[in-house]
Every structure is written in C-alpha cells, then in structure tokens.
C-alpha cells in the first residue's frame, strides 16, 4: 500500500517534471550545440534526467532519443534516477580503493538492493560512487547525508542504514501521534 502510494506520487511528480522540462525547453534555441547545456539545465532543476525528459529534449533538438541518451551516459555528471532522501556516496579513490572501498560499496548495494547510481523504490536512499572526497586518512570513506563516515566496515554499513530506518520509524510514529491528538 505504502509502495503504491509512493509510486503514484512518483508518477505525479514525474508529470510535473516533464511539463516543467517542456516549458523550459522553449527558452533554448533548437540547435545541436545546446544538447549538453540542456541536459545540465534539466539536471540542475530536477536533480536527475528522466527518460521521457531525454525524449522531449531529442524532439526539441531534432535528434534521436538514443543520441541524447548516448551523450548523457558518457558524462559522469548526469544521473538517471531521482536522488534519494538520504544520498549515500561511497569513495573509490586511490586510498579507499586500497583499503577495500569496493567491499563497502558492495555491502551498500546488497543491503539496499540497488546498484551504484540507482535509487531505492521508496526513494529513501540513493547510492553513488565518487572518486576521492579529500579525507584519505579515514579510508575507506562513505558520505551519508553529507556527513563523512570514516573507517567504514561492513558492520558499520548495517548500522548506518539501521539507524536511518529507526529514525524514519520514530518520525512516523510521532507524526501519527500528532494526528491522533
């Protein structure tokens, strides 16, 4: 039920995003050199580039959708899934790589059931890989909700996600209590 509602909201959200994209596309000239600036504009306004957004963009610039998709997937700066409420970034820079950053990433992937670059269905968590966050002494490092978590271990991965879930549950209960009062 909750998932259903989340999906419905997602659809409405996407509709809103798409209408926003099509109206802001009109401000750009229909020339090919605008492809990357347009992709950046969509990403900046909405945090990600929805598939239908790429189709609209392709129509506007008279390109095929696969061309737009090809260009967008080439660059690391574009994401194709909406950012989650709790963004998780796992560092795979040199120091973290040596200290087993891949294992930490794999742990997050398994725990959340998503791959790097994806978002969980309920849009709570999104997982990304980054290359060096500038605190190699703490390797391996992950960034959860903009907070640096150093010396990561598989058990710490469990702990972080558990505590976020507990927090969510707490908030929900408080909200329910407020409703009933």
């Amino acid at each position: 039920m909750e998932v259903c509602r989340a999906l419905e909201q997602g659809d409405k959200e996407e509709e809103r995003i798409l209408s926003d994209i099509s109206s802001s596309l009109k401000l750009f000239e229909r020339k090919r050199s605008n492809l990357i600036p347009l992709l950046q504009m969509i990403q900046k306004r909405h945090g990600y580039i929805p598939p239908m957004g790429m189709v609209l963009l392709a129509q506007h610039l008279d390109l095929s959708p696969s061309h737009v998709y090809g260009v967008a997937t080439f660059y690391n700066q574009f994401r194709f899934n909406p950012p989650g409420k709790h963004p998780i970034k796992v560092c795979l820079g040199t120091a973290c790589h040596v200290k087993g950053g891949e294992i930490i990433l794999e742990n997050f992937e398994r725990k959340l059931g998503i791959k790097a670059g994806e978002t969980t269905r309920d849009r709570e968590f999104s997982l990304d890989r980054v290359a060096c966050v500038g605190c190699c002494a703490l390797a391996p490092v992950a960034i959860v909700n903009d907070k640096v978590e150093g010396h990561m271990t598989p058990s710490k991965v469990e702990g972080i996600i558990l505590s976020l879930e507990i927090e969510k549950e707490k908030k929900k209960r408080e909200a329910d209590k407020d409703d009933t009062e």
């Binding site: 790429m54 095929s64 696969s66 061309h67 737009v68 998709y69 090809g70 080439f74």
Partner: peptide, 17 residues
C-alpha cells in the same frame, strides 16, 4: 540514427534507448 553509443570505457555499448 536510431542507434547510438552509450556509456563509456569497457561498458560502452550500442543503445536503442
């Protein structure tokens, strides 16, 4: 073209969208 190359490095592949 309906086809295009997507992704990069070892993951480069032909895509149809």
């Amino acid at each position: 073209p309906m086809l295009s190359l997507a992704h990069r490095g070892l993951n480069t592949s032909v895509t149809f969208f």
